[in-house]
Every structure is written in structure tokens, then in C-alpha cells.
Amino acid sequence: MVTGPETAPAGISVPVTATGAARLHLAIFAVALALALAAPFFLYPVFLMKVLCFALFASAFNLLLGYGGLLSFGHAAYFGSASYVAAHAAKVWGLTPELAILLGTGAAAVLGVVFGALAIRRQGIYFAMVTLAFAQMVYFFSLQAPFTGGEDGIQSVPRGRLFGMISLGPDINLYFFVLAIVVGGLLLIYRIIHSPFGQVLKAIRDNEPRAVSLGYRANRYKLAVFVMSATLAGLAGATKALVFQLASLTDVYWTMSGEVVLITLLGGMGTVFGPIVGAAIVVTMQNYFAGFGAWVTVIQGTIFVIGVLLFREGVVGILARWLRRPL
């Protein structure tokens, strides 16, 4: 009467307990943090800060795509508008950097609530198109609005003094400030993924009708994760504005939305460390291939195509499969 073996076949059972995986992740975080603390003494801090900002941006995006199953093609809207608001707040209103970043992040959160509430009514490709349309609206608004500086953007944004005391002018000071923000953001994302809420999110991603049939009001969870993702993308964008002392149309353009998709897929969507690795790869590529001029995009595109063809799970996804550990 009973078919199949009574015990789980080897290899497909999950040998790692949740706590075991958590310990491994903690160890990786600790090593990465140690490297990040030492890195500015060996590498150019502004380059490192760019990697950090994009790591946070891509991780925020991955929260939505990899764990919420929602492909937004308009995440530049939150990244870029937070960048503008933070830049404006720091330059025109003379706010301290932490307040400017907070304000920028808040603006992204508000946008996330409005756009998210409308976009989650659609599924799949339609969801992606709606988010893209909203992002394009933000782009054209940024092009026309008086305070964004149009084609010039908001330039020479003051880095200011943290809490009005510590000058963030020197790159090394700013680096540790940015590192603190990004590590905080990444830890928050990690917690969201590994929370009771995160479990429900994964269930909805895996099989939405089933989650609904179990009594979960799926749209509320989707909206919640959308807003979280938009807010954290905003945090990355606002921080970036201070690093480069610039908020420009590049930050809200659709190519920025595309770039974050690329980073996430290259690193490994649905993995904790994938977006971070992806950001390091893509930003490094952009930096070191800068000499090729317009060809950077072509090289980037080629690498992306090869990446998708050869390892669809992304760099970290492949590693996770080899190690048989969730990463």
C-alpha cells in the first residue's frame, strides 16, 4: 500500500538546519565586514562606496524579485528620487547628511506606497510594464521640475558633517559612514528574508493561489515587500548622492532599472549574497573598462548574455548548488 521509500532519498533532503545556515551566513558576513573595514586602505574609497551603494540597491531589488517573485522594471524611480531629495535637502536646505538621507529614503517610501499599491494589481509582465511606466513618469518629472536641475542634475552636493560634528569631507570618514548604512541595510534585508513575514513571502512567490487558499491576503504581503524594497533602494540612492555629491537623470533613467536587474541576475537572484557579488563585478567592470568608452555597455551586455546562458543561477547561485548550502 505504501509506495516509495520511507526515508528521504539522499541528496534531495535538506541536511542543513536553519540555524546551521544562519551560522554560515553570519560567518560570511563577518569575513566580508572585516575585508570591507580593511579595504579603503588598499583600494580607492569612492570606488568601494559605489560598490556598497549598488550592493544595497541590488539587495533591495532582490528582496522584491528573489523573495517576493515580483519583477519591477522601474526601481530607478526610488533610487533616483531619493537621490534627488537627499541632494536637494543637503544642498539647498543645508540639512545634515543623516537627515538628508533619511528624507530621501522617506520620499522613496512614499513613492513605493503609491506606485506599489497600483502596480501589484497586475501580474507578471504587466506588473513589470506598469512599474516601468511609473519610473518613466518620474524620469520626465525629473527632467522638467525646476529643483532637479534638468540635464545638469544637482551638482556639488555638500557631504556635510555627520550629526553636525564629524566632517564627511574626507573620503575615509565618509566610507565608514556609508559602510555602516549599507551593512545596516543588508542586515535588515537578511532579517526580513528570514522572518515569519519572509516565510509567507516565499510561499506566495512559490504558489500564490495556494497561499490565498490558506487564507493569506496575498496583495497585502506584496505591497509590504514592495514598499520595503523601494525604501531600501531609496536608502542606497540617497547615500549615493552624498558619495558622488551629485544627483542626476542617470539615477532615474530606465537604464538604471536595467542595471539593477543585471547585477542581481549576474550575482544570483534569490540568494543573500548574490546581489553583493553582482554589484562588485559590475561596478569593477564599469571602472576598469571605462577606457573603452561606449564599448563598456557592449562588453557588459556580452558578459551578461554569456552569464545568463552559462550559469542562469548567477555566480552565487552556482556556488550554493556546489556547496549544497543556501547562500
Binding site: 532579517r191 522572518s195 515569519p196 490558506l214 493569506y216 504581503y221 509590504a224
Partner: peptide, 24 residues
């Protein structure tokens, strides 16, 4: 985890994103 998803519903902690899933 499949079964826990059902058990978790209605216990009021399904929106808790700040707590570890160890509580499950």
C-alpha cells in the same frame, strides 16, 4: 515549512519582518 505556513496564519505574526524565523 509547508505545514508551518498554514499553522503560522492567524497566529498574528505573519507580518513580523523584524523577528527571526526561529520563532516559527
Amino acid at each position: 515549512e509547508n505545514v508551518r505556513i498554514a499553522l503560522q496564519r492567524g497566529r498574528g505574526d505573519s507580518f513580523d519582518f523584524w523577528r527571526s524565523d526561529r520563532v516559527l
